[in-house]
């Protein structure tokens, strides 16, 4: 498995300095060449992206699609180290960035890549772009962090949920417990006040995201809009992507011609939401 991953990353690197595809950017991430589809949501904390991907995930499941969901910073292998670094406030921007890349690569090698090869729709709540935005906001070099993730493909769809920082702050501060140290960007020393620090840090992240819209072909969704409207836009784009895509057969469903009735049956049993 390892050999294959690297063979592909070698191609990516060969392309780093290739003349860009007309948009003025070098190609950092190669197009997804696997059988499966890769759909990603991005945006700052409180942008509503997790709500939207959750709705999308359930919608695709209810249609009997094979879907795999992966969340940022969720590798079991890296968990205890992340915990330690956060508890001890031991991270520097570089080690934070490298450890999150380690976390991502573990999920890539063990889950995302095999699922994509199998023909599954992989959905990721945050992807390399989170690192490109957040780590750069913390002060690491743009090209350096792009190289770290150059083994990963460009997703088929990237939804960027854009919200003004004030709305995100309101959502975060009313809905949850106290802002955490790194979440608020306290390590940057922007302000002693967590909320002020969060605001300044998130604004920097928004600036990085905004600058990536063309570079990585983001579908920008207005995160301040009504939830249903956002989901409608998301589903329209996903439908377009999945047109003509057969995916992998679902062993829990009977043969194609009786698929519709089988789906109805599953729905009647409460298998969707």
């Amino acid at each position: 498995m390892g050999g294959l991953i690297y063979a592909e990353s070698a191609i990516i690197n060969a392309n780093l300095h290739r003349p860009p595809g007309g948009k003025g950017f070098a190609i950092v991430l190669q197009p997804n060449s696997y059988r499966g589809k890769l759909i990603v949501v991005e945006g700052i904390d409180g942008s509503g992206k997790s709500t939207q991907i959750d709705l999308l995930y359930k919608w695709l499941l209810s249609q009997g699609k094979a879907v795999y969901f992966s969340e940022w910073n969720s590798s079991e292998l890296v968990k205890s180290t992340t915990r330690l670094g956060k508890d001890e406030k031991a991270f520097t921007p570089t080690t934070f960035s490298l450890l999150q890349a380690t976390d991502f690569s573990d999920r890539w090698e063990n889950h995302i890549l095999p699922m994509l090869k199998a023909g599954v729709i992989v959905m990721a709540d945050r992807y390399a772009f989170t690192a490109f935005a957040r780590d750069v906001a913390r002060g690491v070099d743009r090209d350096w962090v792009r190289n770290l993730y150059s083994f990963a493909p460009q997703p088929d769809l990237v939804f960027y949920f854009r919200v003004p920082v004030n709305i995100a702050v309101d959502r975060i501060t009313t809905g949850r417990a106290k802002l955490k140290y790194y979440e608020a960007g306290m390590d940057l020393g922007l302000s002693d006040n967590r909320i002020t620090s969060f605001r300044l840090f998130q604004q920097r992240i928004i600036n990085e995201y905004d600058a990536m819209v063309d570079e990585f072909n983001f579908e920008v969704v207005d995160g301040a809009d009504v939830v249903q409207n956002q989901q409608k836009r998301v589903r329209t784009a996903v439908k377009r992507l999945l047109r003509g895509y057969e995916g992998m057969p679902n062993p829990n469903l009977p043969a194609r011609r009786s698929r519709r009735s089988a789906l109805k049956q599953i729905a009647a049993q409460g298998g969707e939401s």
Binding site: M1, G2, I5, Y6, L77, V78, T81, A90, T92, T94, T95, L98, L99, A101, T102, S105, D106, W108, E109, N110, L148, F151
Partner: peptide, 19 residues
């Protein structure tokens, strides 16, 4: 363990080195 991939090992060592 037995799930450590080559790429992950490489980045884990890079984290150790940077720290």
């Amino acid at each position: 363990g037995h799930t450590l991939g080559s790429l992950t090992m490489s980045l884990f060592y890079a984290t150790d080195f940077a720290d």
